[in-house]
Design a binder for these strands. Structure first.
Length: 285
DNA sequence: CGCATTTCCTGGAGGC
DNA sequence: TGCCTCCAGGAAATGC
């Protein structure tokens, strides 16, 4: 499940492979993977252009081209990007190929479940396509001043952190890991957090994300880096996927609940709900 | 407004 | 071995 650390890893690895490469040809093998309009429009805009820069925004991978066009990838759950030799076998579920010439090979986008996609936008492409909607703050660049306004909502903290329009890049894994590191129960109301808890949460999010990036992300099932190797941060998960195991901090048993419609892992001892919220949302005050 | 539910999609896991 | 069902989940849409 590619979240911010996985996407950041991919962008860093892709950057030297794609920077200043010229797109000689684009082959769309499944038209519906192009989400910004007709596939032929994307092909027309991108062919012949040079890739200038690669950026990450939230969970999206942005390729900036020399004429101002942006090509954006979202990996969904099972999306992968890799650079192969043109002669390499085309693996199953390869939906898009961007040929960069004999020397540089080709960028291939594969996505078994097709929750991912590609967008092309820029330079007068009508109408302006926001890449799958507006994005919230970049957690690694977020100040407390900014974050406190993010928390000022009557929502469960887990649902809020998972909302890409609010915070861009956190998914199920890093949301649960950050909440555990901060000692906050996922069902806590965001606007009910103390200033201290809020400050700690932002600090924990940054720490967890930076450590995860250092370990090239978490590989549970499908995620692979550009070289095809797995990430290793799953070894350091404290709650995610660890239901029934002991908390590395206090020894209590990690539990799995459903919050914000997602599997949610927490330590019931390290992460307690404030007394005011512990008996359900509508208990008398 | 907030939250749950449903939809998309495929492959892996578990049951029999 | 081979079916079958269930489940995972990012994001958008729908319903309450």
């Amino acid at each position: 499940v590619p979240e911010l650390p996985e996407v950041e890893t991919i962008v860093r690895q892709l950057r030297p492979l794609l920077a200043n490469a010229r797109v000689e040809r684009v082959i769309v093998r499944r038209a519906d993977i192009v989400r910004s309009g007709p596939a032929r429009a994307l092909i027309a805009r991108v062919t012949g252009r040079t890739i200038r820069e690669l950026l990450r925004r939230g969970k999206r991978i942005l390729l900036l081209l020399d004429d101002g066009t942006t090509l954006a990838f979202h990996l969904g759950m099972t999306g992968r990007l890799r650079v192969d030799a043109p002669s390499a076998t085309i693996e199953r579920h390869t939906h898009l190929r961007i040929l960069l010439g004999e020397a540089r090979g080709e960028l291939r986008f594969t996505d078994a479940r097709r929750f991912g996609g590609v967008w092309c936008e820029g330079n007068g492409s009508p109408p302006p396509v926001r890449f799958g909607g507006p994005l919230g703050v970049e957690p690694l660049e977020c100040t407390w001043r900014r974050f406190r306004t993010v928390l000022d909502r009557r929502r469960q903290i887990k649902a809020l952190l998972m909302d890409q329009r609010v915070v861009a890049g956190l998914g199920n894994i890093y949301c649960d890991e950050s909440l555990h590191a901060a000692g906050i129960h996922p069902r806590t109301r965001a606007d009910g957090l103390s200033r201290e808890a809020g400050v700690q949460l932002l600090r924990s999010i940054k720490t967890v994300l930076r450590r995860a990036i250092r370990h090239e992300g978490s590989t549970l099932m499908d995620y692979r880096t550009v070289t095809g190797s797995p990430g290793s941060f799953q070894r350091y998960h404290r709650v995610y996927g660890r239901a029934g195991k002991t908390c590395r901090q206090c020894g209590a048993i990690i539990v799995r609940i459903v919050a914000a419609g997602r599997s949610t892992f927490l330590c019931p001892n390290c992460q307690t709900l404030p007394a005011a919220e512990a008996n359900g949302p509508s208990s008398p005050s």
